[in-house]
C-alpha cells in the first residue's frame, strides 16, 4: 500500500511538471502581446518597451518559466496585467465560489444518482427501471443552461424562493451562501446525476451477473442483502472513475452556469482573462486547475485501492 501511494505521488509530480511546461509553451506560442494589448494600437515604442520590462516580458523564456514556477510554489502567482492586483488574491476570491459550488453539485449528483442507479439495477427490466432510465435519458439530453434558465423562471421569478443570480458571500453566513449557490448547483448536478446513475446501474448489473453473487445467494443471503454486501463495493470502481472526472469538470466547466447566474467563479475569471490577454492570470489559473484535476485523480486512485485489495498488492 505504501509503495502504491508513493508510486501514485511520483506520477502526480511528473504529471504536474509536464503540464506546467505544456501550459507555459502554449501560452508563449499563442499570438498577442499583453503589453501592446494593454496600451492600445497607438502606443509609443518606448512606452511599450518600458511596460514590457516592467511586466518581465523581455527576460528569456527559461528565466520566465523558472520565475513563474518558483513564484507559484511560494504562493506568488504574479500580478494581473489588467487589474494590477496579485493573481493569488483574485484566484482565492474566485475559489471560494467555485470549489464550494463544485462540491455542492457533486454531493447533490451523488445523492440523486446512487439510490436511482441501485433502484434501477435491482428492478432490471421492470417499470421502475424503465422509469429511472427514461428520466436519466432526459437528464443527459437537456442542455444545462436551458435548465438553469427554467430554474430561474420557476424558483426565482415565479416562486421567489431564491435570487435569480449573484453570490451573497460567505460573510453573510453559511446558510445564505449555500442558499445563493443552490440553483446553480442543481443546474450543474442534474445532468451529472443522470450520467452517474446510468454508470451505477450498469456497473451493478455487471456485478450482479458475477459468480460470487450466486455464491452469496447459495449461502442464504436474500437478493437485497447480496446486492448491498457483495455487489455495491465491487461496482464502485467505474463509479469512482466517473465521480473523479465529474469533479474536475464541475470545478472549471461551470462557466456557462456561472454566466447564467452571474457568479464570480474561476470559469468566468479565465474567460475574462483570455479576452483581455491577461496571460499571467490564464497561466496561473490553468495551472491551478490542472493541479486540481491531477490531485482529484490521485484521490480517486487512493479510493480504488481502498475499495479493491488487488490494487494494493500491485505496484
Amino acid at each position: 500500500m505504501i509503495r502504491y501511494t508513493l508510486k501514485r505521488l511520483l506520477s502526480l509530480v511528473i504529471s504536474l511538471a509536464v503540464a506546467s511546461v505544456v501550459i507555459f509553451t502554449v501560452i508563449e506560442v499563442a499570438p498577442g502581446d499583453p503589453a501592446s494589448f494593454m496600451l492600445g494600437l497607438n502606443a509609443q515604442p518606448e512606452t511599450l518597451a518600458a511596460l514590457r520590462t516592467e511586466l518581465g516580458l523581455d527576460a528569456s523564456k527559461l528565466e520566465r518559466y523558472v520565475t513563474w514556477i518558483t513564484g507559484m510554489l511560494s504562493g506568488d502567482f504574479g500580478t494581473s496585467y489588467t487589474y494590477r492586483t496579485p493573481v493569488a488574491d483574485m484566484v482565492t476570491q474566485r475559489m471560494w465560489v467555485s470549489v464550494p459550488l463544485a462540491v455542492y453539485a457533486l454531493a447533490l449528483s451523488t445523492v440523486i444518482a446512487f439510490p436511482a442507479g441501485i433502484y434501477a439495477a435491482a428492478r432490471r427490466g421492470r417499470a421502475g427501471d424503465v422509469g429511472v432510465m427514461s428520466a436519466t435519458q432526459l437528464g443527459v439530453a437537456i442542455p444545462n443552461f436551458w435548465f438553469a434558465m427554467m430554474l430561474v423562471l420557476l424558483f426565482a421569478i415565479k416562486l421567489r424562493w431564491f435570487s435569480a443570480g449573484g453570490f451573497v458571500g460567505w460573510d453573510k453566513g453559511l446558510f445564505a451562501g449555500l442558499h445563493s449557490l443552490t440553483l446553480p448547483a442543481i443546474a450543474l448536478a442534474l445532468p451529472q446525476a443522470a450520467i452517474l446513475a446510468r454508470v451505477m446501474r450498469s456497473a451493478l448489473l455487471d456485478v450482479l451477473g458475477e459468480d460470487f453473487m450466486r455464491t452469496a445467494r447459495a449461502k442464504g443471503l436474500t437478493a437485497r442483502q447480496a446486492l448491498w454486501r457483495h455487489g455495491l463495493r465491487n461496482a464502485m470502481i467505474p463509479v469512482l472513475t466517473i465521480i473523479g472526472l465529474q469533479f474536475s469538470f464541475l470545478l472549471a466547466g461551470g462557466i456557462i452556469i456561472e454566466q447564467v447566474f452571474y457568479l464570480p467563479g474561476l470559469g468566468r475569471l479565465i474567460f475574462q482573462s483570455i479576452s483581455a490577454r491577461d496571460l499571467i492570470v490564464v497561466e496561473s489559473v490553468t495551472m491551478l486547475l490542472v493541479f486540481a484535476v491531477i490531485f482529484v485523480n490521485f484521490t480517486v486512485d487512493m479510493a480504488y485501492a481502498a475499495v479493491d485489495p488487488r490494487l494494493r498488492a500491485r505496484t
Binding site: 459468480d211 460470487f212 450466486r214 455464491t215 445467494r217 447459495a218 443471503l221 465491487n234 479493491d308 488487488r310
Partner: peptide, 24 residues
Amino acid sequence: LCAMRGNDIGMVFQEPMTALNPVK
C-alpha cells in the same frame, strides 16, 4: 428458502477463480 440455503443445503460451484468476492 434463504434460511435453508447454506444451512441445510450447501453448494460448490465450478469456477473457483470467480466464485469468491474479490474485495472481501
